[in-house]
Every structure is written in C-alpha cells, then in structure tokens.
Design a protein around this nucleic acid. Structure first.
Lengths: 350, 350
DNA sequence: CTGAAAGCGCTTACAG
DNA sequence: CTGAAAGCGCTTACAG
C-alpha cells in the first residue's frame, strides 16, 4: 500500500500542498470550503500526516527525553506517570532512558537520549554532573526533578529533604522515643545526606545524644533495609524506634523485624519516607513522609511545555507531608497515658 | 550556534556528502584515508547526525511504540523494564502510552501512538479488539504480551494462567485446605477468567464442592483486595485459605486480615499470583505464582527487533513457577505432623 | 570505492 | 486567504 501524502490529498481536494498543509497545522486561516474539501479528501484517502517529515521541516521532534534511574521503581514510576499525564494532549511524547543508579550507565543513557532529536529534557535525580546539565540546558529546555543543579535553580523541582526528615524525627521524639535507630540512604546521594542531617538536627534540638551504633547505611532498596536491621541487632543495638530514609528500605526493615519476632509498632515504631503507594498496604500501614511524586512529574511536564511555548514558568514549590498511619506509637512508658492509635483505613489511598 | 550538517563535514573532509554519509551509516565500504578524514572532521566540528533527517530519508523512525496500562504499575513496570533492556544498544527507543485499564483511554492512547512514525508496536494486555490489532499487524511488526490475538498466535507472549492458577490451588489443597476463598480478577479480563477456571478445576479434581459464598471479584488493585476480605467476613464466610488472583489484591487482602487480627499463615494461608518484586518483602513474605514478567519484556523487544531485521522469530514459551514463601501453611489439623515452614530469607531476590 | 542528483513528506517565508 | 518554491538534513539507487 503506497503511503498517501499531503500531495495526494491536495490534489484530490483541488488545492495546493501549502493550503492542505495549513489545514492540518492550523497555523493560518483557510477558506471554509477549501478546508472542508481537504478534510474530506484526507478522510476519503485515509491520510495520516508523516510526523517525521513534519519534524524535519518544522525543526521540532515533539519528543521529550526523560532520564530516569529505573522505569519500574515505585518511586520513579510515579514521577513518570505524572510526566505522561502532564504531556497528554500536548502532542509531545516522552522517551525514557534509565541509568539504574550506576554512574556510567546513566552517562550512556543520557548520551543515547541526546542522540535523538529532543525538544526538551527532564532529568530525574541521578548523578549526572551539574556542568553537564548546564551545558545541556543551554541547548534545550531542561527540568530537573529531585535534584539541584548549580545555576539552574529555577528549573529544579525539589522538596525539602532536610525538613521532611526533621519532621519524621520530631514525630518519633514527640511520641516519647529517645533511642532511635536510623537507616540512611547512600552517602553519595544528596537527598540521603539531607535526610540524615534533618534527623541529626532533630536529635540535637531534643537534646538527644547521637549514638553511632544506631546508624546504618543502605542503598535505598528493600534488601538493604533488611540487612541494615540485621546489622543493628548483631551489634546489640537497643532502640524503640527505627527511622528509615525511604519506604523501600523500610519494607525491608519491616521484614527484618518480623524475622526477629518484633512487633510494629508495639515493640518498635517504624517510619519511612516517600509514601509510595504500597505503603498504605503494608502491615501495619506505614507512617511516612509523603512526597508529591506524581504531582512533581506533572509539574515537570508542564514546565517543559511552557518553556517550549516560549513562556517559561517557575515551577511551584513542593511540600512534604507527614502521613501518620499505624507503624508508629508512643513509647512503652507513655503508652497507657495516651489513647491507642486509631485503626483507621488507609483512607487517603482508597 | 548553527547546527552543523553532513555537508559541513564532507566539505571539511574534502569528500562528497554521499561518502560522508556512508562513513556514518556503514552501508558501503569507504577508503581508509577518506574514512579517517571524515571522522576527524566530524570530531573537530562536533557533528551529530540528525536522526529525523535520517529517518525521513531512510523510512525508519527507530521508534517502537508500547501500549501499556500504567507505566507505574509494579506489574507493567517490570515488563517495560524488560523491553527497555531488550532494546538497549539496538538504536531503537521505546515510546509509551497508557490506557489505565479504561477501554476508551486505551483506544485514544493507541491512536496517539500510531500518530507517530513507529517501526514496531508492542501491546501489553488491555482491551484493544483483536481485529484492530490484526489490522495494525498488517502495517508493522507487532508483538502482544499477556494477551492472545486471534490469528496472531505466534506474535503473542503468554503464560498459562489456567495452569498457574491450578497449581496455586493445588498447593493449598495439598497443605490440607478445603475451605478456600477466592478473590478473582475482573470478569472482563481474560487472564482473570482463566485463573478462576484453574482454581475451579483444581477444586473439582480434589472433589471439593465450590461454595459461591467464598468467591469475590476484585479489580486487580490493592484496595479491592481489602474490600473483598471485608465482603467475605461480612457474609460470615469461613475459610482456612485465601487465594487471590494477583499479588496486588493479595496485599490488600493481607491488610484486611490484619485489620481483623487474623494471623497469616497461622490462622489463614494466603497465596497470590505474579510474584511482584515486593512480594518477597511483605510480612510474611508472600507465596505466589511467579510470572517471568521482566523476561517477557526482553523477549518482546527481541521479537520486534528480529521482525524488523527481517528474520521473524517465534518467541519462546514462558512458564510460571510456584514460589513458596511463608504465607501458606498446612491446615491446623495437620500442622503438628509436618515440619514448620522454613523461615528462609527471600533468597531469590537478594 | 565514489559523486552528482533525486527524493523522503512536510513547512514556511515570500509574493500576491 | 493562497500558491509556487525553497529547504529541512540525510540516504540511496545510478552511473562510473
């Protein structure tokens, strides 16, 4: 089947190619009867514009590159879903590449992405150097999510990890906990460092001495949470609450506690960070700090679209929010004096 | 910065555009010194081929469309990761569109996808009619994952849902369970129907009468699992095992049991289907039927690539595998006579 | 192995 | 509002 082109349509409609083109692009007004004739001809012939030719001629590819770490990660997946949503109806499509948390893989993913004709680029976290991103930002609209870039502050969508983490710690401290173990994220990761600092500051503000024995580092994935708990116990660490730098590690930690026959929250309180959608369905449902992940994806897409439209917009600020579920409870000593936690359903998710 | 083109490179290297083009496409041999001159010029000028122009001239877009339901779903996300992996290094990129389990949205997602110049199409499940897919398959290489298409059997990657489900039920029956409740997937979904049939057949083979009171339908998402358990209890249903048509609903069901203070597996055994990566980290780790989700994604990509390369290959068969973790146990009556379940770590995931 | 030339299917000043 | 024409940057028979 020979592909039918604009020329075929124009011919059938008795107009010039230019006019037919205008009907589809909508850039210039076309007399009503000609417009109708073109539409009719296109319909009859089953014409579909060739996006590639259009791109070459117009200089726009209608493709937005998205550099992520793992499309199937519950965290990044949510952001991607938001991006998809934000791009919907715009005519732009997203095209992904994943670095899988490895510096080299990320570099090659980015390289592969830039080998395509992109109209914009969204970068989700990762380790690509600031300078590289600055260079790219000079070439095309760029938005970074979940990371900062020197000199591109207005193009970065971030949350306040320090504050969020501080508030998690505060929640535990206010419940009476003083011996709080912490499973940190990888020190190479900016967010992880900020969260650790938030935790530390809260301890300091409550005049609680930090105990190095209660600190373990993980890699943000489930297995490392499990191993971290094992590490704590094998050190003989004693604690009444366990704070974890992200939900995925908190899941692993939860399993570690289960393995030891430790009840949550009766014996130990557990708190995560991110509020992944599964966190409303763990047993018990996880208390955690909610990141507006999906919303940030949407905002990133909108920011790119705006920049593409020539009216760059400063993305809104994103706030984290403590979601108190059932994995945290007052310390033993105080429990009797406080009402039992409300066994509510994970309502906000249903 | 003016974009530098092949012509610039050719000029700088003192060769024709054709020759320069050949250096990059590698379609024809080029004399060594000219080859070197071109490479050097390209390097000096920082030349990057324009993929769009290349596409228009060659007639290939290097884009594979992927019609999915939700990029952030733990199930589809795994398949997508596989596709990404399978495409890596091929020069082809995947471009996604999601139907979100809604018939109309899926149709519009597909329409949007086909509005682009695609070299191939991968369809993950969904409700797009067979005829539509057949029509598309006549236009471009097409692979379906997790669904059948009349007349395109060799282009469908599927697992045997009936058998997988049968084996889940068998596992419970062999543990001595006879009163087994079942949370089914949506009846509109082919996989859901097959799984229900597998469950029923197993009951029949074990001469267990089916009790309609023990059957509830969900929608494959977590909240429906929770609600299904509530429905069962509010009916006053009695059962010693709960079989669930997929892991996500099993998570919800797990929470429902927890709400009632029911222990798993001491009071009730729980089994899922899919083996999502989180299922190794639930408490207790979930016994489930493993689908080689990631592997199917890889295979889908390879099949598309093969078709594109002109040597279509019949994709391999995929087998499900029972993963026995800790959410299933013998019925009370028999428990004493059997060894306790081995509290192993979720080893295969670590 | 190489060059001149046509062509991929559209868009967009330009002139009316 | 409309047409003729140039051009987007490459690939690929064709002829040598």
């Amino acid at each position: 089947m020979a592909t039918i082109t604009l020329e075929d349509v124009a011919q059938a409609a008795g107009v010039s190619v230019s006019t037919a083109s205008r009907v589809f692009s909508g850039t210039t007004k076309v007399r009503a009867d000609k417009h109708a004739a073109v539409m009719k001809a296109a319909d009859a012939l089953g014409y579909r514009p060739n996006a590639i030719a259009r791109s070459l001629a117009s200089g726009r590819s209608m493709l937005i590159g998205v550099l992520t770490q793992d499309t199937s990660s519950p965290f990044y997946g949510e952001v991607l879903r938001g991006i998809e949503q934000g791009l919907e109806g715009s005519g732009y499509s997203a095209i992904f590449a994943s670095g899988h948390w490895r510096v080299e893989e990320e570099a090659s993913a980015l390289h592969g992405l830039m080998g395509r004709p992109l109209d914009g680029l969204i970068v989700l976290g990762g380790h690509t150097p600031d300078e590289r991103l600055s260079t790219l930002a000079a070439q095309l609209p760029l938005i970074a999510v979940g990371r900062g870039v020197q000199g591109l502050e207005t193009q970065c969508l971030r949350i306040d990890n320090f504050q969020g983490s501080y508030d998690c710690a505060r929640h535990l401290l206010e419940l009476g906990h003083r011996r709080i173990a912490y499973i940190a994220g990888p020190a190479s990761h900016r967010d992880a460092r900020d969260r650790l600092e938030g935790f530390r500051r809260a301890l300091a503000d409550w005049k609680v001495d930090e105990d190095p024995n209660l600190l373990v580092e993980g890699d943000f994935l489930e297995p490392s949470g499990l191993m971290a708990v094992e590490a704590l116990f094998s050190r003989g660490a004693l604690f009444s609450a366990l704070m974890v730098a992200n939900d995925q590690m908190a899941y692993g930690a939860r399993l570690g506690l289960y393995r030891r026959g430790i009840r949550v929250p009766e014996d130990i309180s557990l708190i995560g960070f991110d509020d992944l959608s599964s966190s409303a369905f763990t047993t018990p449902p996880l208390t955690t700090m909610r990141q507006p992940t999906y919303e940030m994806g949407v905002a990133a897409a909108e920011a790119i679209l705006a920049a593409l439209g020539g009216t760059p917009l400063t993305p809104p600020e994103f706030r984290v929010q403590l979601i108190v579920r059932e994995s945290t409870a007052p310390t033993h000593r105080d429990r009797q004096r406080l009402p039992p936690p409300d066994p509510q359903y994970p309502g906000e998710r249903l």
